[in-house]
Simulated assay, not measured.
Amino acid sequence: MANYTAADVKKLRELTGAGMMDCKKALEEADGDVDKAVEALRIKGQKGVAKREGRSAENGAVVSLIADDNTSGVLVELKCETDFVAKGDKFLAVADALAAHVAATKPADIEALLASEIEAGKTVQAFVDEANANLGEKIVLDRFAAYADGYVSAYMHRTMPDLPPQIGVLVEFDKENAEVAKGVAQHIAAFAPKYLTREDVPAEVVESERRIAEETTRAEGKPEAAIAKIVEGRVNGFFKDATLLGQPYALDNKKSVQQILDEAGVTLKRFTRIKVGI
Rank of each mutant, 00 (worst) to 15 (best):
V184D: 08
R52Y: 09
N134T: 05
L27V: 09
E263H: 09
R55C: 09
E224F: 01
G73L: 03
Y249A: 15
E263Y: 03
V276P: 07
L75R: 07
K229I: 09
L65D: 14
I66S: 05
G19M: 05
P248W: 01
E179Y: 00
Q186A: 15
Y249T: 08
Q46E: 12
E39C: 03
E119T: 10
D96T: 15
V76C: 08
G45S: 06
T216C: 01
S116F: 01
S153E: 11
Q125P: 04
L75N: 10
G168I: 10
K175F: 02
D129V: 05
C23F: 02
A154Y: 00
A112W: 01
D241S: 11
K51H: 11
S208M: 14
G88W: 00
E53F: 00
T243F: 02
I212W: 02
H187V: 11
D109A: 10
D33P: 04
R13I: 14
D142K: 09
A6T: 13
A189S: 14
G233H: 06
G237K: 14
V76S: 06
I118R: 04
P165M: 04
L75P: 04
G54T: 10
E224H: 07
V62R: 03
A103R: 06
V169M: 01
G73A: 07
H157I: 04
E207K: 13
S256I: 08
Y151I: 06
G45L: 00
L12R: 06
E28W: 00
K90I: 12
D69S: 13
E29W: 00
I230S: 08
G48I: 04
N236Q: 14
N132P: 01
A61Q: 11
K122V: 15
A112H: 07
L268V: 12
G168F: 02
G121W: 00
L245K: 06
D174K: 02
K229H: 10
K51I: 08
I110E: 12
M1Q: 08
I274Q: 10
Y151E: 09
N70S: 15
D35K: 13
Q247D: 11
D83C: 10
P161F: 00
E14A: 14
L98A: 12
K25V: 12
I43P: 00
H157Y: 12
A61L: 03
V49R: 02
Q258H: 09
A228E: 15
R198V: 13
A104I: 05
E119W: 00
R198A: 15
G136D: 06
V235T: 12
G88P: 08
G88D: 06
K10N: 14
D8S: 13
A190V: 11
G150I: 02
E176P: 11
L245C: 09
V184C: 03
A145H: 04
L113G: 11
